[in-house]
Nucleic acid binder design. Sequence first.
DNA 1: TGAATAATGAGAAGTCAATATCATTTGTGA
DNA 2: TCACAAATGATATTGACTTCTCATTATTCA
Lengths: 132, 132
Amino acid sequence: MSDPSQPVTRKTQQRDAIRKAFVDASRPLGPQEVLDLALESVPGLGIATVYRTLKKFLRDGVLQIVELPGAPNRYELTGLDHHHHFCCRACDRVFDVDGCPEQVADLAPAGFELEAHEVVLYGVCSSCTANG
Amino acid sequence: MSDPSQPVTRKTQQRDAIRKAFVDASRPLGPQEVLDLALESVPGLGIATVYRTLKKFLRDGVLQIVELPGAPNRYELTGLDHHHHFCCRACDRVFDVDGCPEQVADLAPAGFELEAHEVVLYGVCSSCTANG
DNA sequence: TGAATAATGAGAAGTCAATATCATTTGTGA
DNA sequence: TCACAAATGATATTGACTTCTCATTATTCA
């Protein structure tokens, strides 16, 4: 479990706050969003620590990257069921979407080896629809 | 047809070569790919001209942007039928994929307004499969 | 509690795609 | 052919996101 090439991990307020941000949000978060949310728990938290922690959580398998077209990377907790994402064009937040169109696997041209796929929905989320 | 806010458009070797690159390739191209392909027609072509021309072609409706997760923008000719894209992880080229999973429209959560969607396939293209 | 050292915060520095600058070249209509 | 202005090529610059540096702080365990 311990990797001798990595220093011993300590438990810190900052890391707890960052982990908590993901658990509470239940949606993919970008670095700035993580900072904004975690600042509520740890005033003074810096963006550098957010980036460092995201990187560490990736290494540790706590988080995984969510890449979206034309947008900076988001991060989400690992271990979720296969799902896709909805980007709200009004608030720029990203939400999880359950399910997956089965025919996706049939789209690949003949002779192409399909290894993975992404489905990204765009529109307006329910809270923006209500408030907008 | 002519926009008085824009200078008179001239016909140049460079623009012809860039347009030709898209027609010949029949797939989305990134700026560097465009440069590489168009250099065969116009030695000395610069990357700045490629960017300028892509922007102009976007304004003119000749090209449209293809945004892909975690990758720089590609561009493709407008007027194609609705389609999606396949990214080859070996050669990093992007190919068009005909068709669309119909159930995509059903994925959006209740209360969310779906306006558009993207489907991106990842894998190995046929030529890389053959040569790899 | 105290030494060792991991972690942090602030700001500098790096990356990389995309844009701006400017002297030179080239296309176009007269 | 000429004169004007659009277009180009080389390069500097921007802008955003991310990483690095280093002095300081905080955690851990003997």
